[in-house]
């Protein structure tokens, strides 16, 4: 009886479409690592900075969504084939825009992001300078 239940459960969990997911199995490279540890590390580093297209603010490395799995499979396949991570990122950005990459591009619209910490320090120093007294002598 227990085995029957187990089988029913496996079928139920495996085949029931949840929301609008397909019932096809995920691409193999979505959930297995590349055999070469260095390549896998490269792929992992890239995946952490590519945004999942169908999620609410996650990288493809952290998402259970199907499309995220397919994107991971694509990244791993390309890295295994020798492509550079930046080229893969550029390919994705070409198709989806800068939004898909968590690494903000360095251009006219984003230089302020990197200048911000420095600017804040300067403003703060300005605000604080009157608290100090002059050194004697």
């Amino acid at each position: 009886m227990r085995r029957l239940l187990l089988a029913a459960l496996i079928v139920g969990l495996a085949a029931a479409p949840v929301l609008a997911d397909s019932d096809m199995p995920p691409a193999p490279l979505a959930y297995t690592q590349l055999p070469d540890a260095r390549q896998e590390a490269q792929a992992q580093a890239l995946m952490q900075t590519i945004r999942c297209l169908v999620c609410q603010g996650q990288s493809i490395a952290d998402s259970d969504a199907e499309l995220a799995g397919d994107m991971r499979a694509m990244v791993r396949a390309r890295i295994a084939a020798g492509e550079k991570p930046e080229a893969i990122r550029a390919w994705l950005v070409r198709r989806y825009g800068a939004w898909v990459s968590y690494e903000p591009p360095l251009d006219r619209t984003t230089w302020l992001l990197w200048a911000a910490p420095v600017l804040f320090v300067l403003i703060g120093l300005l605000a604080a300078r009157r608290s100090f007294r002059r050194r004697r002598g």
Binding site: Q48, T49, R51, G57, S59, G97, A98, W99, V100, S101, Y102, E103, P104, P105, T109, T110, L113, W114, A116, P117
Partner: peptide, 15 residues
Amino acid sequence: LGVKISIGPPYFNRA
């Protein structure tokens, strides 16, 4: 400005 970008760990971890 009509531009869509994403800011996440790569920016925050460094900045």
